[in-house]
Design a protein around this nucleic acid. Structure first.
Lengths: 342, 342
DNA sequence: CCAATCACCTAAATCGATTTAGGAAATTTT
DNA sequence: AAAATTTCCTAAATCGATTTAGGTGATTGG
């Protein structure tokens, strides 16, 4: 039984005053409009008596502000994105914004659809980890004047404010760590589609590092829709052919899981048979046996910088507002047992 | 540079027709209002030419429907809730709803604040994993007529539609599994506050099972704000006093992690020294060493039933709509290595 | 040729707030 | 007591859509 909500009008009517008066009082603008103290009291009392709840939809329509931002990622149930989402949620809440979260499953058309949806809902800005290969769709968004910050993944074009981890460097230091630990044949496990900047940058870092060490790059590309099966088959084949790598750099958390499953299933010991390092640290890595070494992304910082830039765009306030600078935040190598050669 | 969006009015004006006409056409009601085919074409063409995007805020205000639902949980970055959120997101999207996600950090006042916020934003319904001990606040919500479904945790009062796992039974079968595996002194690791129904039910199931086996219940309560340190201290103390349990039932995923950290830190082997089973299965458990046994909750099913009931309330359509029945869904025991006594 | 019918479209109210320009009554000034 | 000021409040437009009751002009019927 959905009964009608109490509106400003109801308060006004039951008090015999205009709704302008009520609005002014409830928005704390009584003083600047010289409204009598006694009237204020009556309004406030009546509002609480009727259990008045301002309709934000109406308010937003009138003000042209929805106090809502959108977050679009490939999958909110991926722990990396859920941590990111949480960090952004906290920042948004403090700033008086609500957060609408959407998952794209890496599907470009779904991403486009969701972006349009958010736009229709008049979100004031969008933080996006895009699965797009080109910039056309986002350019259209930007032309509509809606504040946009790319996070996690950057795009080829340079026209958007972008906040990412230093993935290339992460790929390099992770690889160097393997090499420094005595590994000679590190395999990089990447996922496709190849245009995802995080992965390609990490591959680049990996390639730089092995090349510098005089080792031939060895990159396996795993189709993202079938990570577990593909990785298991790969490890199985390499083992059968006696061509196993002595170490693996798993370039995101989904391949890390797949690699661990596969290695366990094929009875390969980490780090004795194969060393392993993960791009993305996960809480569970710390207490696994062996504990998994990882390149950790600065999630809280990513959220903070991205949100800050979005707010700058929304408020049109700061110097960074209409810059489309790309920020790359430093990553952190965490050495644990999975790369400790005996 | 936020330029004004194109509105219905703009289309109407530039075509020299009324905005009613435009609205009718764009909503596919042209036929039933006998609008000329040629006019339809002109409207459609102009709309796409001007890149018209309907303002959902205005639409919602007029229709009294926001096509938005709220999801309130204690922490969206907890993998259990993020999986749940993702499942709900998918269902909501298919039904044409957006999802606003909020985290309460187990703080009752924050929960109240967020619920009010969602209400002000005119969400059409709320799915809530509540941290409240009593029902007053939610009763107020319900009196406002806003559709509400409790998920994951039930409350003492019976007046809300509720969808939970069968936590008591889960506690029982997990414990029985320990006992059947030959463990004699299983410790249950619970978290406080004690009014969280999931935990108390699981404790109940544990108690039932040990009691039936003639074993004295042994429950440690861990304050939720300091899970890791507290658990580590506890294990340390028990070890020092030579009073270690031979097995642990960790009653949610956060204590499981803490227990694993603590056991590893104190050099205690799982399952050789201490058996371990977790309430909540986590993808990582499968390939850990040892792989962790778990009682798995039917996350997808929880989402499905809860969302279905919410929709029933929103549409006022079905028999379940105004029932406040509690549904308990079956859980699943997954036996892995961590409870395999040698 | 007047009325009835049809095809097609519009005016205006409405959702619930915000805001600006200004008005009436009370008070002070001269 | 008329003018000026102050105090306190209201009317009405506005945001952008939806929807209902009706209106206009052309065609058809008798």
């Amino acid at each position: 039984m959905k009964q009608k909500n109490v509106s400003l009008n109801d308060i006004a009517k039951s008090l015999g005053v205009s709704r302008a008066l009520v609005s002014l009082v409830l928005n704390g603008k009584a003083a600047e409009h010289g409204i009598a103290e006694s009237t204020c009291q009556r309004v406030l009392a009546k509002a609480s008596e009727l259990n008045y709840k301002p309709n934000q939809l109406a308010r937003s329509l009138r003000l042209g502000r929805s106090f809502t931002i959108g977050l679009v990622v490939s999958d909110i149930s991926n722990i990396f994105y859920s941590k990111l989402a949480r960090a952004i949620e906290d920042l948004a809440e403090r700033a008086g914004f609500s957060l609408v979260i959407c998952s794209t499953d890496e599907q470009v058309d779904k991403e486009q659809k969701l972006l349009r949806l958010l736009q229709n809902r008049q979100v004031e800005g969008i933080i996006l980890s895009s699965s797009q290969a080109d910039c056309d769709d986002l350019t259209r968004l930007k032309n509509d004047g809606i504040p946009l910050v790319l996070i996690d993944r950057k795009l080829g074009c340079k026209q958007f404010s972008t906040v990412v981890s230093n993935n290339r460097l992460g790929g390099e230091i992770g690889t160097k760590h393997l090499i420094d630990s005595g590994y000679k044949r590190p395999l990089a496990l990447a996922i496709t589609p190849a245009h995802i900047s995080t992965i390609s940058e990490r591959v680049k870092g990996y390639t730089d590092a092995v090349t510098e060490a005089g080792i031939a790059p060895w990159v396996a590309e795993v189709p993202f829709e079938e990570v577990p099966t593909y990785v298991e088959a790969l490890i199985g084949r390499l083992k059968a052919e006696n061509r196993l790598p002595d170490s693996i750099f798993a370039l995101n958390n989904s391949v890390t899981s797949a690699a661990l499953v596969a290695l366990k299933k094929h009875g390969l010991d980490v780090p004795a048979s194969v060393g392993l390092i993960s791009f993305d640290d996960i809480p569970y890595f710390e207490f696994m046996n062996p504990a998994i070494s990882a390149v950790e992304q600065p999630i809280a910082k990513l959220a903070e910088v991205a949100f800050g830039r979005l707010m700058d765009q929304i408020n049109g306030s700061s110097a960074t507002a209409y810059e489309s600078l790309t920020v790359e935040l430093p990553v952190n190598l965490i050495v644990r047992e999975s790369t400790t050669k005996k």
